[in-house]
Design a protein around this nucleic acid. Structure first.
Lengths: 258, 258
DNA sequence: GCCACCAATATTGTCATACTTATTCACCTG
DNA sequence: CAGGTGAATAAGTATGACAATATTGGTGGC
């Protein structure tokens, strides 16, 4: 119940470190993260009314400006809705913008559950498969070169962080080559999924897993190079499924031990 | 091309009417929409610095509170990023949250281009195909019943608005039955796509088009009822492709005429 | 003449307080 | 009992001052 001290920012830290974002530590972002996490974690139930401004003001010891800007940010992400005389209501989850990087991060802060990782893998399969197929049809030679280069860098990576960086770079390059702006827009989601997966278990530490991961990514790149859309689809599906399976397997075995 | 005069809120109005949202007309949302549209329309270039607070303050004739809350909202959607002493920078498009309902609406305000509609159809295919397949595996009997009921209502619809409403209801039901929270979260996107498509051309006005649209939706429902995942996939792909093709065809023929 | 450091400055960030507007709920009137 | 009416409450808006921060350019030392 006490959040006062401690400021636990476990997975958030990792993601921020990887992406280089979220450097600024404003007051308003403190309130934002506390409130955002409190809502996502269910501390404030969906459909319920948040404490009125005055009370939150007292709780956070900040100015009204700061509090209100934080709440406006939450409203922009679809988590809450303010109405005069009623108060500020927590919206039902299906109104939340789950594709938002912050909202995703808050979900991970309460420990990534297997079911959530699976949902993530499912959307990734949907979107990235399509991106791979489109990339196969529309890629330029430059873009194909970038893909192959990213795979080579993955193969040569020596630390989990390095590997994650190049893996992400690869998936961004596919999205870019698809020529569809929406595909590029979900890189935040991919980023989160990869970071979570690698936090749990990186293939770098297991030679045969590394080899397999690199091989399947190379297959994607090759299929796109060959303008082979069905092949790119299938390879992408395998890449995502494999990554999820490794993380989920590790989580379950860790769970059964405890 | 001229939008200069009178606050053209064409597609925005339709979407608001359909979804029942965006009723409130506060000062801050005026500024938000003006700025959001200005950024999305390229009036403020990506990477450029917005005018400083003082200037915008003077331009909009509102208090600093209002302006700053509007900017914070834009920042929450990934369109801008403010830094002390530097100013407020327009972020590159790949940082924008294109899945956000407002950001989408701003894109439509400047006239939906065929290429944008196509991108939208492509992501929808990616996500909703997967949703349909998952729904086929996980649906409850109740959910299957909802799907069939929605199709029946589509068939009986008499106005374009009515048809659009039940079409949306159908796609939401599929997302719901998939059991994946992300799928439900993109209904804003589907909503926008459907509204745009029906604004351009509704199948209600053409008996054979209506029949075809209803038939393909019924095929999706039936496949999900039969727990036939591949069938649901294929039917969903056809439904989305068909809707896009009709809208795109109508737009091109209208364009060649002018 | 080059480099490192520091101060001036411009821009966003934060604060405190007062006032306005909208909406619900209860009361009061017909 | 129905319907309007007003008080109470919460968010919305305004304003002016001060703090934090990072760039820019100057200043001094080497």
């Amino acid at each position: 119940m006490d959040r006062s001290g401690g400021r636990a920012r476990h997975s958030g830290d990792l993601i921020a470190a990887l992406s280089g974002r979220n450097l600024a530590h404003n007051l308003h972002s403190d309130v934002l993260w506390d409130m955002g996490f409190a809502i996502v974690s269910g501390q404030y139930e969906q459909g319920s009314i948040l404490p009125p401004d005055t009370e939150l003001l007292d709780q956070f010891r900040v100015s009204r400006t700061v509090l209100r800007e934080a709440l406006k940010t939450l409203a922009a992400k679809g988590l809450i809705e303010a109405r005069a005389r009623i108060g500020t209501r927590v919206l039902p989850r299906n109104r939340w913008n789950l594709f938002d990087a912050d909202v995703l991060a808050w979900h991970f802060e309460l420990g990534p559950e297997v079911s959530f990782l699976q949902s993530l893998a499912e959307v990734r399969i949907g979107i990235e498969i399509e991106a791979a197929a489109l990339a196969a049809e529309r890629r330029t030679d430059d873009q194909a070169g970038m893909l192959l280069a990213a795979v080579d860098r993955m193969a040569a990576a020596r630390t989990p962080e390095e590997f994650a960086r190049y893996d992400l770079e690869f998936h961004k390059a596919v999205a870019d080559a698809s020529g569809n702006p929406f595909m590029a827009s979900i890189s935040a989601l991919v980023e989160m999924a990869l970071t979570a997966a690698f936090t749990i278990s990186s293939p770098v530490n297991e030679p045969e897993a590394l080899e397999q991961t690199v091989a399947v990514h190379r297959a994607i790149a090759q299929a796109i190079l060959d303008r082979n859309a069905p092949g790119a689809r299938e390879a992408m599906r395998m890449a995502i499924a494999e990554g999820f399976a490794r993380a989920a397997g590790r989580m379950e075995s860790a769970e059964s031990k405890s």
